[in-house]
Amino acid sequence: MNAFRLAGDMTHLISVLVLLLKIHTIKSCAGISLKTQELYALVFATRYLDIFTDFISLYNTVMKLIFLGSSFSIVWYMRRHKLVQRSYDKDHDTFRHQLLVLPCLILALLIHEQFTFKEVMWTFSIYLEAVAILPQLVLLQRTRNIDNLTGQYVFFLGAYRSLYILNWIYRYFTEPHYVHWITWISGLVQTLLYADFFYYYISSWKNNVKLTLPA
């Protein structure tokens, strides 16, 4: 475990806690894409299949449980909780996320490190996570006023994978035979998708103005 990866995991944890805080305390999911939340729940469900078979460390297991628990409870809140549902913008959250799931599944069946069920599912989760933010970014473009918590959520979610890229660079230079092209390329694509959001988020923060994305 290196500082970049720990910082990445903590940033990821913060993004999830910011979202849970928003939904649980003010009972609002304004500006949040249910599609992205469902995709993330699927990402964690297919990535952590080994949670009961391979014990890496207490930290690893606890974090997996937190990510699984939070992503599924966020989906539950947005689908079932009467009060939260009222603030869900279903007219604008219309990204057909099936268009993301199927190509990722096909790609995972074609390009993977080993052709086993767990490995293909894990690879699918890597590809899916790279594009899972798209419905959320599309929704942000459509909703004019982006509230602070939503902006912070997306910012931390994007920042965590860029910290992971630093972690992969560090591990590449410090650990022999540490090469994972699939994860590296997907992680890079994932981070690049946030590039314009980062630009507008940081410039809105610098100019101390409300975050708005161009239509």
Binding site: R5, R47, D54, I56, N60, M63, F67, Q114, H177, T183
Partner: peptide, 10 residues
């Protein structure tokens, strides 16, 4: 050391 295929990252 965990074998190569085991994923130690989240």
């Amino acid at each position: 050391l965990a074998p190569e295929s085991v994923k130690d990252e989240l």
